[in-house]
Amino acid sequence: MWARLLLGLLAIYLLAASVWVVASGFARNEQLLNVACDPTRELWHDVNAAFVAHYERETGVKLLIRQSHGGSGSQARSVIDGLPADIISLALWTDTDAVRKAGLLDPDWETRYPNRSLPYTSTIVFVVRKGNPKNIRDWSDLTREDVEVVTPSPKTSGNGKWSFLSMWGSVIWRGGTETEARDFVTKAYQRVPVLDAAARGATMTFAQKGIGDVHLTWENEAHLEVKEAEGKLEIVYPAISVLAEPHIAVVDANVRRKNTAAVADAYMKFLYTPEAQELIAKNFHRPTDPAVFAKHLDLFPKMDLREATSLVPTGKWDDIQKMFFAEGQVFDQIQAAGQKKK
């Protein structure tokens, strides 16, 4: 009797669950999906909540905004494979452009919104132990014999790529030659005890396991890391660094299909409003609105930020990828050279 009742309840539960699963496959159009790279989780939580309130005030419609986070490259791949993103905010131009190459973005994605589709920028800074015991001030300190550097692999991580480009650029932008840059970067990577695959792994290595003297990371991640370490770490701002440009784009093919083009457009425009720019600054990304940026100079010390595209003669991201990170190119070569010397 009881067994039968129990089995009956179980059957009903399973039936309901199956129906729910099957029904969940039908597209829901009332929501917006922002597919982003890892280090922007807190930022988008804040911005999405603000936009939902803003949109409700303007139109009376209560939106549902979802966010997905992962490595920049794998997020791009998912969108190409059919993740129904309306907005993508990835760490690297090449990742965003890979989605365009798959036919999901219109060719003019970069010029449709102000500032080359960049509501904010960021950069790579140093995190060091409290009091900076090794006195690490600038890029040239990374190759000192007594310094160990923590940074993720540029092969797999967006953070790693920006760090690599910063190191390379620190020589080039100050008038060095390519040979000098290669020499410097080779020596710097010899000072890396563990080359983690992803940004979070590198943070763990440095902050929790206590390995290394300096951690190269996104400016906003550096603030989080320092806050979490409760007084054991501090940030050092090198005088020069790369201008990290995490572009944000509307996935045109998806918004057309989902009829969310108007909402996605409103979302993009909202990112440039003072309200959103304030949230961006609060999350330690550098707002591109000069007025908001000027208000937060205390958060963002003056640094000489240079575009990564100045590192290749053509000024094209595709060539950065080809020259530095492709199979058998600069990064692989310096890895091999570094191993030989060890």
């Binding site: 969940s24 496959g25 039908f26 597209a27 998912s78 190409i80 494979d81 059919g82 129904p84 299909r257």
Partner: peptide, 27 residues
């Protein structure tokens, strides 16, 4: 499953055109 139901395949495209999401959804 990504290869079967992803947008690289006719099945994935057909599902998308009929508004049904298999991959990146509970199914």
């Amino acid at each position: 499953f990504v290869l079967i139901f992803g947008l690289q395949t006719p099945l994935g495209l057909w599902l998308r055109d009929h508004g049904y999401q298999v991959i990146f959804a509970p199914p």
